[in-house]
């Protein structure tokens, strides 16, 4: 007798978050990226809806490499020309008190230049210093008003200022928790209590690179997704995974050939797609290219 495939029925789906606003929506982006909307576990195409492919954001910084003559905007333009990412993730690292201490005004001005020269939907990430992020992110939110960016990261000790800024200027938010499903859920509740709709929150579950705790991230993401599909709207957010940042910090990626680092980043990314990642923030053009191919093949 032929075996029948048992198909799971779920009652809820992952919320759909939109990033970017085109001219007709009051922004200046070339398109709108939609993430989420899954009605089943990752890549079980026969079991439920999987309407939006995972997308790749190219990570660029507010500082250019020291041997680049033209400043961060032209460096970002060069990167984006090479890697064909779906969106751009600007990390305002130079605002960190120990790494340049750029002022909110400087960052806002830089962002203005970015928005003028680069038309991809944007993710804007602070420097990781809570006090400083509370100054630079509101300034950047305001400059990027109407552009429907994704702003991060809100953490449980520091989410109010960022949430208020995102709320005022029409952006969505990244809620970051330290590989902890309980905190992820709590943070989503706290942020939505401030009035930001759950479909404007993306969870950063915090990941480890291949060989460095990737499986912990995987199990947290799986647990959240199972609960989300079973009806828990407070964890039904798309995931953003900072793949480049994690992959390029491990010794295997740095010590071997460049090719080995690229593979490390690409494999970390593909494993996270299987875990349910919706947005992959990546660094190397070649790794981005390979992972894009992988996504297109899976979703074709």
């Amino acid at each position: 007798m032929a075996k029948e495939l048992i198909i799971e029925k779920w009652s809820n789906m992952v919320s759909v978050v939109e990033i970017g606003a085109t001219k007709s929506e009051g922004g200046s982006r070339s398109g709108v990226i939609k993430v989420g909307g899954q009605g089943t576990l990752p890549c079980l195409f026969k079991e439920g809806a999987m309407p939006n492919k995972p997308v790749i954001a190219s990570e660029v910084w507010d500082t250019a490499p020291s041997d680049w003559p033209d400043g961060p905007v032209s460096w970002a333009e060069k990167c984006l020309k090479e890697n064909k990412a779906d969106l751009v993730c600007l990390r305002l690292q130079g605002a960190h008190p120990d790494l340049g201490n750029k002022s909110p005004e400087e960052e806002a001005k830089l962002l203005k230049d970015f928005l003028k020269n680069i038309d991809l939907p944007m993710i804007i990430i602070g420097c990781g210093d809570d006090a400083k992020d509370n100054l630079i992110l509101p300034a950047c939110c305001q400059i990027a008003r109407q552009e429907k960016c994704l702003i991060g990261s809100a953490v449980s000790d520091n989410y109010k200022t960022i949430t208020a800024a995102a709320l005022a200027d029409g952006h969505s938010i990244i809620a970051e928790s330290p590989i902890d499903i309980n905190i992820a859920k709590q943070l989503n509740i706290l942020i939505s209590d401030m009035g930001l709709a759950l479909n404007r929150i993306v969870i950063n579950p915090t990941i480890g690179a291949l060989g460095y705790g990737l499986e912990y991230a995987y199990s947290i993401m799986e647990r959240a997704r199972l609960a989300a599909l079973a009806g828990d709207k407070t964890v039904a957010s798309p995931f953003i995974c900072f793949v480049g940042q994690e992959a390029w910090r491990v010794k295997e990626a740095k010590a071997g050939s460049l090719e080995q680092g690229i593979v490390w980043e690409a494999i970390t990314a593909t494993a996270l797609i299987q875990a349910g990642a919706d947005i992959l923030v990546m660094r190397h053009a070649k790794a981005i290219e390979e992972v894009k191919k992988y996504i297109d093949k899976l979703w074709s």
Binding site: I181, K185, Q186, R223, D232
Partner: peptide, 15 residues
Amino acid sequence: KQIYCDSYLEAYRRK
């Protein structure tokens, strides 16, 4: 059957 969080009572009531 529910994921714990500090506001789990409130979270349940939101469903």
